[in-house]
Amino acid sequence: MRTTLTLDPDVAKMIETIRRERGATLRDVVNDALRRGLTQTKPARRNAFATRTVSLGRPSLPNVDDVADVLDEVEDGAQR
């Protein structure tokens, strides 16, 4: 596969140094580096996310399934 690749200056310098030391082509050095990096890279293992539970005490309202009832109860309590 033919593609254009833009290298950061520090990476280009490292590749050029390795290329000269080995007497290899740019293609061979880049392919070797990519093969090594891709086979050694494993996805980072994530720890399971967990939340702590805390007691909030007894609810002040017995049932909060009906919003209208809750609003009536709260409004009545505010007027007392």
Rank of each mutant, 00 (worst) to 15 (best):
K13I: 04
I15W: 00
T25N: 04
D66C: 13
V29E: 01
A50D: 10
E16Y: 02
E73D: 15
E73R: 09
T51D: 06
R58F: 07
G77H: 15
R46H: 13
A24K: 00
R45Y: 03
T25V: 10
K13Q: 13
D10N: 07
D28L: 03
D72K: 09
A12N: 13
V70A: 08
R2A: 12
R36N: 08
K42F: 11
R36K: 13
A24T: 02
N31K: 05
A44V: 15
E21L: 03
T17Q: 10
R36M: 15
R35I: 12
D66T: 06
R22W: 02
T6S: 11
N31H: 07
D28A: 08
P62E: 15
T41G: 15
V64A: 10
A44G: 13
D8E: 12
T51P: 02
A12C: 09
N63R: 14
D72Q: 12
D8P: 02
D32N: 06
P9A: 07
E16G: 04
R2W: 11
L34W: 03
D10P: 02
V70F: 05
V64N: 12
T25L: 04
G37C: 04
S60C: 13
S55C: 14
K13N: 09
V11Y: 04
M14D: 05
P9M: 06
G57C: 04
M14P: 01
R80H: 11
M14R: 07
L5F: 09
T39Q: 10
K42P: 01
V30I: 13
T6P: 03
N63Y: 10
V54M: 14
N47W: 13
L61D: 08
T39F: 03
M1P: 03
E73A: 15
A24P: 00
E73G: 08
P9F: 02
S60I: 06
I15S: 00
V67Q: 06
L26I: 13
P9D: 10
A24V: 01
F49T: 10
V11E: 07
R2S: 12
T4G: 05
A44R: 14
P59Q: 07
Q40W: 07
R27P: 01
A33G: 05
T6R: 14
L38P: 00
A44E: 11
R22C: 02
